[in-house]
Design a protein around this nucleic acid. Structure first.
Lengths: 208, 208, 208, 208
DNA sequence: CATGAATGAGTATTCATTCAT
DNA sequence: CATGAATGAATACTCATTCAT
């Protein structure tokens, strides 16, 4: 009973690991299911017991990897307590950026396919305990820091999209500059976005 | 000579038009070269006289479509003179956003493939006069408005990436909200980005 | 013992019923063993406890269904006594044609696979009491009606093949006409076949 | 121009010949397209330039072979003039039966798939001059012999179905007897079918 | 320049069958 | 007896690319 379930988990895990390596190495399109099962030491048919097709695998893998990323950032945050929502947010973002800078394959794989929808819900996480909803997580952080914010979702959306797309370009192509170089400006823009959204009224003129 | 050139242009144009329609309709991956030439009324071999392969066509098409987009925005700006760099920038962005809102196929096609590199250089423009470099264009606008800016490229990069990725989500999926809804906040963030980059940096004083 | 036998019968029966429905619905080739066991609520391995493979199942099913058909016709004949071999034969044929007209799936399934061999011997009947030999049955009817016939087997063969193949076309495709339309002609041809085989052959005089 | 067309004909012909041999040898189901093209000395893709799939090939092949059969019978008839419709009909049928007796593979292949619809129309004949409509052909023979017949189509249908299905059993399995043995009886039944359908009125009582 | 017939490597997917539990 | 996870051989079909005409 437990044995069979354990074996099943192992197989799925093997497919995850192998396919991720291959996607990183050769790209999604050039990776074949034959490649995956051959490297995972499984029969072809077995693949189809766990995933509908290559696209299903990809989607589940993105959820999985994104979840892992946030989980690691969250755990780091727990071990290095930081005060205030802004600092916490920056800590998490910087932590993730740092990981991605050292794992460009991961960045390449995730970014091409990540969307706000996946980010917000991360519902299809194959392992239940991973299916944390990041948006909920940040809202909680905000609440704990007693931040007032009219449109918390839009605020996070703006930040996440900005960070995601600029990272992609700076880290992978160093265009228009390196991540090192860009990071302080990114922080400053994020700082301003927080100001904008936590101001009493977005219409009112900004203080200078 | 001129005749032959005209004929060549016509064929290339036919491939552009047909392939764009098909990419919009069925997506890039599902569109075959057979499809394209059949719809364009050409022989298969003819395709290879004009493009190296499907990827070459796609890249040239993206440049072409992106150029067109900016060209239209630029022409609109010429006819509705607006004062000041910020207003000009917003005019151009809003104009493009409006087009994309009404042509989601175009948005889908461009966004998946647009990167800062293409945006900045637009090098492969098949029609020479299209190969305007947008970055240069904006730098010129800035100069005309006598804007001082330490890192103009980074500033535009931040804005373009933010606009690009948020548009994609808001227009195509209305996530987390509609473009209508999000637009004022986007404007405000852009406003702040301009402030950040055109004010004396907190770290380093502007040279005079 | 009896219990186990009952259970076995039940499973076999479930496979028969389910597979027949599926064969009718999707055809033999498109029906998979997975389909069958899933619908029958059994495990895949169980199938192989009862049948060698799909072909074995099909053959047994044809025998089974053909037997049922004749059994029903026979029972009807018992309840509506008819005099004379020709009338009895026509009664049985008409009865069966009527059933097939109302169950085209059955006709389709049986006809594609029925041959004179199966008809004559019905050897593989899975349930022993079904394994009535139709040819023997008709010979008995003939004997009871005191019909003299030199080649009774050929006579039945001619009739059965004619009825079988014309039914198939008339009922399933209404080609060249409907069964309704064709039936009187079919009767007349059968009548003549009976005449031919029960009259002194032109070539060889009947032995007395 | 003519060269290319000739080559195309040759390729189709090669596929026809090769596939027919393979179908005869291993059966339709067990013959793969890979087999066919390998034996025909063609590339896989080439197959799909000429036929939609294996089923398309089979149907066209049946038409082709059936047409050939009748064509040969017709040519033989032209060279051995026979008087009267019945004699002509029997000549053609006997001629075909004779061919089939000596080419059981052909019989096997055709019979499993021949239906009255194909017989009557033979429309899809790949080579135009083959697309003779047999039913029309026989109607013509009848007209020439000044035969009056109320339901000529039904008459031919009855004969063809009878001949087809009895041949199949007698030739391939010698069940219930050999074709040699059965032939005179078949002739007699056909003779009677002609009588039935050419009688002034099918409703009127048969003369005894 | 233009054609389109021919190519054939390449890939996803199915499914009957087995066997450890 | 029953199960159903695992297997992997088998196959249809696609499509970018070439090259003789």
């Amino acid at each position: 009973m437990g044995k069979i379930d354990t074996k099943k988990k192992l197989k799925q895990s093997a497919i995850f690991q192998t396919s991720f390596d291959l996607f990183r190495e050769k790209g999604f399109a050039k990776t074949t299911i034959s490649d995956i099962v051959k490297n995972a030491g499984l029969a072809k048919g077995t693949f189809y017991l766990y995933f509908k097709d290559k696209y299903d695998l990809r989607d589940k893998l993105i959820s999985h990897k994104t979840s892992q990323l946030f989980l690691r950032a969250h755990q780091a945050l727990m071990q290095n307590p930081v005060d205030g929502f802004e600092n916490q947010l920056l800590f998490v973002l910087d932590y993730i950026i740092d990981i991605l800078e050292h794992d460009k394959g991961l960045l390449q794989f995730i970014s091409k396919n990540l969307s706000w929808g996946i980010f917000k819900n991360a519902i299809n996480a194959p392992v239940p305990e991973e299916s944390m909803k990041f948006y909920e997580y940040f809202k909680e952080l905000m609440a704990k820091s007693q931040i007032q914010c009219l449109h918390p979702e839009q605020m996070l959306f703006s930040i996440v999209e900005l960070v995601g797309s600029t990272c992609y370009s700076c880290i992978l192509f160093e265009e228009p500059t390196t991540m090192q170089d860009y990071l302080p400006h990114l922080h400053e823009i994020i700082h301003h976005i927080l100001i904008i959204y936590t101001q009493p009224s977005p219409q009112e003129p900004l203080p200078d």
